[in-house]
Computed example of a mutant assay.
Amino acid sequence: MKRLSRRHTRIIFLALLVGIGVIAVFLIRGAGGDSPRNLKASETCLEDIFSGDPDPLERLISPDSSFTADWSREVIERSLQLTCKNSTDSATVVMTAETRDGTRQDWFSSLKNHKQVGKKSEASRFDVGTEALAWDNAAAIYSECKPYSEGSSHTQGMKRPYLSIVATATGTASSNNDEHRTDLANVAVKMLYEAQMQTGCQESFVPPSGPPRIES
């Protein structure tokens, strides 16, 4: 049996090193990309929402170099819909706000379109709007709409206008602990106050100074 020359031994050794490096990079990316970093409000879907307090979103999504944010504002049959989407390759947090017409029961029935929303009996409550509920990976707010003027374009013709706010977390943003529910409720509250400013659904309000208090 022939002995390998020094040159061949060196080539094999270098090939092994390259192979180990490729596997290490693959494992790191598979585990969620590069290291998480601090999130700036200006990088989010709407800076005004997270101005001075992007921490809840940062904890939910653990932003890395793949972080992206998108904001959309649509009018669908006189109803205004706002969407704030923040995501990485492995996690997504979406907040939506929409003006609707109906009762509190109508609102809860509409939440079934979001698979992260569970049974009402499984939800924790928090004191914002008319009714606010939080699950492991979703938070929702029902807030009666009180336009600052009659005939608001976003509530015209509605008998019982309200704002429906939903925040959902998927991928590695999913979890099942109390801090996670509080953070989801927090971003939902931020979306509510932004929606109120854009729709005029409340004459006056004061944004909360801290996170909402979750009740068991």
Score class of each variant (00 low, 15 high):
residue 37 R to F: 03
residue 37 R to A: 12
residue 37 R to M: 11
residue 38 N to I: 15
residue 38 N to T: 15
residue 38 N to G: 14
residue 38 N to D: 13
residue 38 N to P: 09
residue 39 L to T: 05
residue 39 L to Y: 04
residue 39 L to D: 07
residue 40 K to Q: 15
residue 40 K to D: 14
residue 41 A to M: 05
residue 42 S to H: 05
residue 44 T to V: 10
residue 45 C to L: 08
residue 45 C to I: 06
residue 45 C to A: 14
residue 45 C to S: 14
residue 46 L to V: 12
residue 46 L to G: 04
residue 47 E to K: 08
residue 47 E to A: 11
residue 48 D to M: 12
residue 49 I to T: 11
residue 49 I to L: 14
residue 49 I to G: 02
residue 50 F to H: 11
residue 50 F to G: 02
residue 51 S to H: 08
residue 51 S to I: 07
residue 52 G to W: 07
residue 53 D to R: 11
residue 53 D to T: 11
residue 54 P to W: 01
residue 55 D to N: 12
residue 57 L to E: 01
residue 58 E to N: 13
residue 58 E to L: 06
residue 59 R to G: 10
residue 60 L to F: 02
residue 60 L to H: 01
residue 60 L to C: 07
residue 61 I to H: 00
residue 61 I to N: 00
residue 62 S to D: 06
residue 63 P to G: 03
residue 64 D to C: 10
residue 64 D to R: 11
residue 65 S to R: 11
residue 66 S to F: 11
residue 67 F to M: 07
residue 67 F to K: 07
residue 67 F to H: 07
residue 68 T to E: 07
residue 68 T to R: 15
residue 68 T to I: 12
residue 68 T to Y: 00
residue 69 A to F: 00
residue 69 A to Q: 05
residue 70 D to L: 11
residue 70 D to Q: 13
residue 71 W to H: 15
residue 71 W to V: 13
residue 71 W to L: 15
residue 71 W to M: 13
residue 71 W to T: 12
residue 71 W to C: 09
residue 71 W to Y: 15
